[in-house]
């Protein structure tokens, strides 16, 4: 037993080498099953990385994410910033010669990361949470409170503070939120119930 935990410990660090355990294959299979995408087909041509508009900002480029999924490196992948930086532009999906949808795989990886409460990119996670809270409350996005909430939660208090008055002046900010929050909350409730 003790040995197994040590093994586990090893696979959980970011240190080299990658240790390939039976666990590793399970992670690969889970990603394939949940995303419905044949990540195992990836032959590392790198076209996704080559065309990715945000690859420059990623800690692990898309093609390497695919490779690490193939090698079952769950922690490395789920703790990466890259999965949060993927903007979902689907350039990779459009051009993948192996008909894999890496953008969809990224969606799955984000879901799995949240389940394990990994949020390597605080900004994006905070923004997503604020966004979803916002539509739960109002039914539609209400920009003034969305930005406010994001700024408060992320600690970037003054981000875009200069734009508020200008936007207001240009009539670009709505004054009243929508009142369809209940419709969206019902859906969240149904999903929440299902989850637990």
């Amino acid at each position: 037993m003790k040995q197994a935990t040590e093994r586990e410990q090893l696979t959980r660090t970011d240190e080299l080498p990658i240790v390939l355990t039976e666990e590793a294959r399970k992670f690969t299979e889970e990603v394939i099953r949940r995303s419905g995408e044949r990540v195992d087909w990836c032959y590392q041509c790198g076209k996704c990385t080559a065309g990715c508009p945000v690859a420059f900002a990623m800690d692990i480029e898309p093609s390497r994410i695919m490779r690490l999924v193939q090698l079952g490196q769950g922690e490395r992948v789920l703790k990466s910033k890259a999965i949060w930086l993927c903007v979902g532009c689907q350039t990779c999906t459009t051009r993948c010669p192996q008909e894999i949808d890496p953008a969809k795989v990224m969606d799955t990886l984000r879901e799995m990361a949240l389940e394990k409460e990994f949020a390597a990119d605080k900004e994006v996670v905070t923004f997503f949470r604020s966004f979803l809270d916002n539509i739960q409350r109002y039914g539609r996005v209400f920009e003034p409170t969305l930005v406010l909430q994001y700024n408060l939660r992320s600690g970037h208090l003054l981000q875009d503070a200069d734009k508020g008055p200008l936007m207001l002046f240009k009539g670009k900010l709505p004054l009243r939120p929508s009142r369809n929050g209940a419709i969206v909350r019902k859906i969240f409730d149904a999903l929440g119930g299902r989850r637990q």
Binding site: T49, A50, S63
Partner: peptide, 18 residues
Amino acid sequence: GRVSKIYQQDGKLIVRGV
């Protein structure tokens, strides 16, 4: 690696690959 895009800029072809 594969090339993802080729486009023209300033009389050159910009090859964006990996």
